[in-house]
Amino acid sequence: MSLIQLNDVLKIYTSKAGDVTAVDHVSLSIEAGEFTAIVGPSGCGKTTLLNAIGGLDRPDKGSIRIGNSDITGMSDKALIDFRLNNIGFVFQAYNLIPVLTAMENTAFIMELQGVKKTERLQRAMDLLSAVGIDGKANNRPNQLSGGQQQRVAVARALASHPQFILADEPTANLDSSSTGQLLDIMAKLNADEGMTFLFSTHDQRVIDRARRVITLEDGKVISDVHV
């Protein structure tokens, strides 16, 4: 059974200029352990598709199943808890909590999950060293570079033991060396621990490292290539 299963997902945005079909009857399945990039030009529907998979937005039609759960029928509140326990998010703008240190940002999700203090501190430290910034554990986001912040974001995304990580344009704001480091880290996590990564990107460096590339155009999957 696939980790993520999309069946005939349709999402239409209504605007004054007319209806825009952002995701047009997409069916997809993603297996555990994949390192997959969703690519395509701006406005092709990558982010909408990712939001739907991440349970941040509801499709107008079709269904999305993650593991054994059909998330399309879940209440808002249930979705929040589902996201907390099953999905790791990495955003383009890092979105760390500015008043928390790198360590606290990482431990934050675990605290919401109710993990014991010693355990979460230990895991946060392990994760920070896994992403190579354990030396900056007590720094706040504004004391970190963009690349460092994004690595903290990855650590945070991993902290909750998610089923997979959704990364929406994670390298868009990073220089090439930071991008390289970040991709190395994610590739290593994928290889060593079998963590599933799903990117939306139009960064060629990401596409080059991906082992499956799904191309969207006008909301439709126009190609799906396993490298």
């Binding site: 941040l56 808890d81 955003f91 500015p98």
Partner: peptide, 12 residues
Amino acid sequence: EFTMQIALGVRR
């Protein structure tokens, strides 16, 4: 920030 935290799984 609210939006981002809700996305991460923080209850309102």
